[in-house]
Nucleic acid binder design. Structure first.
Lengths: 233, 233
DNA sequence: GACTTTAGTAGCGCTTTGCTACTAATTCGC
DNA sequence: GCGAATTAGTAGCAAAGCGCTACTAAAGTC
């Protein structure tokens, strides 16, 4: 049956409290880490929260996320992508009815944090978070993992130049398993995604590694067959 | 520089007008189609809009999308997935500051529409839409296409039982190119996603086709290498 | 009963991929 | 100074995957 209540025939936008929450993701000390802030109210149920704010005035959601990232990190973030909107009734630190989550990808060990109120947590050892924000973190990690092979996620977690071993380490972190060096490099070569620089890095022991940069070249149409083997659920 | 304005130190959620907009996607007459509604106000700038409403009371975003889908289609939709939130300053028919888009996947030719105010439009021949909603449609189509090989999108656009030729036609519609029958079936077989029923369908001319149903079986760990060839931009 | 149309399969050759086994260049320990 | 350890990078083989042509199968059309 068709439901034809009056508000359906002439819908009207409703006011709702809104927040923009960011999940800053970065490789730190051989693990994948998320940046959490100490809750301003020490009597709060959870001691840690995601950085967040409400969008201001005419500011877009993406701009709000960039502003929160900038004010949290003390520098502009280059890779900010929306995860999705969260609008269930789970608790949010600002009691927002709807929260829009953003993933901020940050290269590892870029600068040290100059605040005791901001701490990196290994994604496998997260403290209790307000339930809405916990869902945002989980979805954010799922987001980066599922787009790893469609979007240059891994390159956003590295500085502009990097060694191929570093790149492989990022993939291994995100996939949670070891990869074979030769196969990894062969596949990378075939995709024309990186180009070598003329610099080499000596990282303590062992042979120095050549530095590469992310420089995707146009390649001929990828008329590959369908992949059923990646479908889940 | 760290930006420490007062509102940053103690953020507060802000009120914003909110809408939930749905993109009903379905194969209709050998093309991919989107369902549009006639604008209630005939003096409006655009004659056609996406079905939408504001969430009510404590209703979650997903529940609101289900309700809009149900009231539009006259029946419950089974596959509803959030696209993302749209919060730029583009125009929305209800002047919502933030709109959350949902994709509703509907099997083709299920039932005829019992309203002149609802029309299927070929995705390649869409009429003018309010700019915010146009962005939602574009993102919705991009959404289904990009998740085609990670999520059982194609099966949601088909009835519970279907022939393999129908399944292949859905993939060809979404990918915009022809696929080879034998390769398609071999890949599908290898993924253990479908199981045959004991029914066959005679579709006018030609040999009858066996009907299959979507029944994903657990398969051994897919320890495949990394795919760099799908990375874009 | 020949012709057309759609369903479904066999199998060949080329490409891709996983893997072992190598070579190369550096630091460390003595 | 020199072998051991360590990290970078490559060669090449065997197996699996994939694109494609060419087939067989079962229905309707005339």
């Amino acid at each position: 049956m068709r439901d034809r209540s009056s508000s359906d025939a002439h819908p009207a936008a409703r006011q709702a409290t809104l927040s923009v929450d960011i999940v800053v993701i970065s490789p730190q000390a051989k693990t994948l880490a998320v940046l959490l802030a100490k809750h301003a109210d020490s009597r709060a149920r959870e001691r840690w929260i995601l950085p967040w704010d409400a969008p201001r005035g005419e500011e877009s959601l993406a701009d709000a996320a960039l502003r929160v990232a900038r004010s949290t990190l003390g520098a502009a973030a280059s890779a900010v992508e929306q995860i999705r909107a969260f609008g269930d009734n789970r608790r949010h630190p600002g009691d927002a009815e709807v929260s829009v989550g953003f993933a901020v990808l940050l290269p590892g060990n870029e600068r040290s944090l100059d605040s005791d109120d901001l701490v990196w947590f290994d994604v496998d050892e997260l403290p209790a978070l307000p339930p809405r924000q916990r869902a945002i973190v989980d979805a954010g990690l799922e987001f980066v993992r599922s787009r790893l092979d469609q979007s240059p996620i891994a390159f956003r977690l590295l500085p502009p130049t990097f060694t191929l071993s570093e790149l492989q380490a990022i993939y291994e972190l995100l996939l949670g398993r070891r990869l074979h060096k030769a196969s990894f490099r062969r596949a990378l070569q075939a995709a024309y995604l990186v180009e070598p620089t003329d610099e080499w890095r000596s990282e303590g022991r062992g042979r120095p590694a050549q530095l590469f940069r992310y420089a995707p070249k146009k390649r001929r149409d990828n008329r590959r067959g369908v992949r059923f083997d990646l479908i889940t659920s």
